[in-house]
Amino acid sequence: MAIRILSVDDSRTIRLIVTRSLKPYDCQVIEASNGEEGLAAAASEKPDLILLDISMPVMDGVTMLTRLKEDEGLKSIPVIMLTAEAGRDNVLQIAKLGVRDYLVKPFKDQQLIEKVGRVVTLANKPAP
């Protein structure tokens, strides 16, 4: 069964890059453009992994992560932060909330694949 990855980022460019990077693998990328949409998608889609930005309109990534970890049904979903902001305070606060990894933008496709591959098993797409 395909791995389901939720990409929460207000930038369509980043969501496209995530989708493109994961294209060779047997996974489905679900997109959300802010924390509020991300929480709703996490609840309805139950992804295997969430890639989460910090600075977003409506609801930022830290707030979404906090709510996610407060929710018994969602708190076990692993999260990788995918953000340009890696300042000390942000990182310490987020680490306390509990994330599996942290990838700082800019990133290469291969770096994303490596980090994702440490959390979920990425299998190549089955032949059509």
């Binding site: 600075s55 340009a84 890696a86 300042g87 942000n90 933008k105």
Partner: peptide, 8 residues
């Protein structure tokens, strides 16, 4: 990205 790194 550039300003996020800069801000950090």
């Amino acid at each position: 990205i550039m300003t996020g790194n800069f801000k950090s």
